[in-house]
Design a protein around this nucleic acid. Structure first.
Lengths: 337, 337
DNA sequence: CCTCCGGCTGGAAACGTTTCCGAGTCATCC
DNA sequence: GGATGACTCGGAAACGTTTCCAGCCGGAGG
């Protein structure tokens, strides 16, 4: 168990009868002498040498690691990103470090500040809120950072975002087209960036359809199934609806449960739409119409941007916007034109 | 952007007018002189010093990182583990590294062998198959390893497992108690450890209930919704069933879709049960009865075991078995006794 | 034949810490 | 008052690599 410590490059050098510099060169392909390479290879195998990643990092100033920080990996949107990011990074030989911040601002700041420890070569960050302290910490990060999500214009950081406001509007318009006139909205916390944008999109969509905003139709909870269900029940208790738009798929799922319990059929009596287009939407009953915010795509793009920086890209900070799109399934009424 | 490199302990020493050893001591709490500490703190703030994690690692031989390797983070069972593991590790100051092996044996071996690079202090591994090469690589790992899943007895590695065979049996017996006599089974790949065990448990359960195994009732796909749906359709096309047991929740969800399409009510006409007791089971319609294999719990235990090793635990390899339990929801018939 | 040049090799200096060890300071105790 | 001890601090070695540099050798050219 407590083996003597692993062999170092010195033992290899001794076994091969050459200097450590020659071993290093042979292993890193900086030698043209095939004999030397063979000798070193043999010695490596003989002593069972594996280079120390830490020592290499110290010398080369690269760790081969990239961090991804988000609220909670349990959230399907972040999950989709991870599933896209990890393989891409791996392709380029990077390992992935996961930070779950639990939506704690201090945690996010900590992550940003700990970058100066240089334990990773780069960071992909999904802040749920953007505070002044975030902006301050993003001013000159110790390593390249890509932010996924909304960000004030003046922050000079690579950024990939979507337009969830526009997405919310799409959903509302679709529900309207399907015949809905009393469209309820169940939101997540209003003081989060997504919560704010989705609410704005909801109102915008109503206005575009010529409908008034009726606060009786709006409820807030968090971004979870139970909250969606409870919020929908509150709405049903006080007014009539013919559609419910959930600020994410979990909320919409909760809404479906509440509606079913109240004896409403979907989409016959009430249409339901969600947001994020996660696998939950595909597999729910009935399958849920959902606004796709391109999570996978955003993850992939963020990874590409970060890798480009790490490969020496030095152009000014980029910004990419992934447009939302609507995936229509059976929880809403589709109008063929 | 390309700032001059971050200040080192040397700049701090110079700024404070003391030696680097004093700086190190002051920062690590090995100094009793408060003046010295104050002076150093001030200098640190002044030059904006943050210690290099890499250099510290090299010197202390610890990285503060732990790896978790599993098939696919998209799998809800692994997700549950991660959500349990990450906060626990974080409590003790460890960062989490994620490896998704895509069920590739070579990948898993690579992870094990790369441990010799010492880029992490420990590993939690969820192998989907256990080959001789696994066992060989586990013989004397460079850092402590905890395996989640079945493992031959003679492998001297900390191990936390569940009894999915027993779990499958529980499900079958529950379906039988609810009145089912033709209980179909939709499995994942039979050559995986879970696939094998669950099939064995299914047969065992039937036998315990005095039922015969009818191969017409058994189908195999992979552990996904679509496969579960397709497999269920194949079964329905050739025989009658009054219950379907899916080898995981995704399969069971697919089965529910297939049954509904075929016009069967759940649980009236056909009962359905799944396995893993993921959030999907809670949120599906109707909520899915599912066998819990204690994923969260196993993750937590694995984390504890690993941390115990890292804190110097030197007792022989432990094995913990988490018993399966049944979570009954509306997709099956409960018999009150 | 001597010089110059190019290619390999080995020694040594980094990378940024922690920690061992010896030297110095000060107070205490005989 | 001098020796002894307890403490603190600075220098230097170490952790395991990569890479610069100088030296060596052989071959080619004058």
């Amino acid at each position: 168990m407590a083996m003597s410590s692993r062999p170092t490059i010195h033992q290899v050098a001794k076994a091969a009868g050459v200097s450590i510099s020659s071993v290093s060169r042979a292993l890193n392909g900086n030698t043209s002498n095939p004999e030397m390479v063979a000798k070193v290879r043999a010695a490596v195998k003989q002593v069972g040498y594996v280079p120390s990643a830490v020592a290499q990092s110290l010398k080369t100033q690269q760790t081969g690691q990239i961090a991804f920080a988000m609220e909670d990996i349990g959230n399907a949107a972040y999950l989709a990103m991870v599933r896209e990011i990890q393989p891409r990074l791996r392709e380029d030989g990077y390992r992935l470090l996961l930070h779950a911040t639990a939506a704690d601002v201090q945690d996010e700041i900590d992550v940003l500040e700990s970058l100066a420890q240089k334990y990773v070569d780069g960071l992909i960050l999904c802040p749920i809120r953007v505070t002044d302290r975030h902006i301050e910490a993003l001013r000159s990060p110790a390593v390249p950072v890509v932010v996924i999500g909304q960000l004030p214009d003046h922050v000079g950081v690579d950024n990939v975002r979507t337009d969830s406001r526009q997405g919310a509007r799409l959903a509302v318009e679709h529900l309207y087209a399907g015949g809905a006139r009393r469209i309820a909205f169940v939101n997540g916390p209003a003081d989060t960036v997504p919560g704010h944008a989705r609410y704005a999109g909801y109102r915008e969509g109503l206005r575009a359809c010529g409908l008034e905003v009726d606060e009786l139709l709006v409820e807030v909870g968090d971004f979870q199934v139970a909250a969606g269900q409870a919020a929908t029940e509150r709405i049903l208790a006080r007014t009539d609806v013919d559609a419910v738009f959930g600020a994410n798929d979990l909320i919409a799922l909760g809404a479906m449960h509440a509606l079913r319990s109240a004896g409403r059929s979907i989409p016959g009596d009430v249409q339901v739409a969600g947001m994020d287009d996660t696998t939950l939407a595909e597999t729910s009953f009935p399958p849920l119409t959902s606004v796709s915010l391109g999570s996978r795509e955003r993850g992939g793009i963020a990874a590409e941007m970060l890798l480009a920086r790490l490969h020496g890209g030095t152009e000014p900070a980029q910004r990419v916007t992934v447009p939302p799109s609507l995936t229509v399934r059976q929880s809403t009424v589709e109008v063929s034109e």
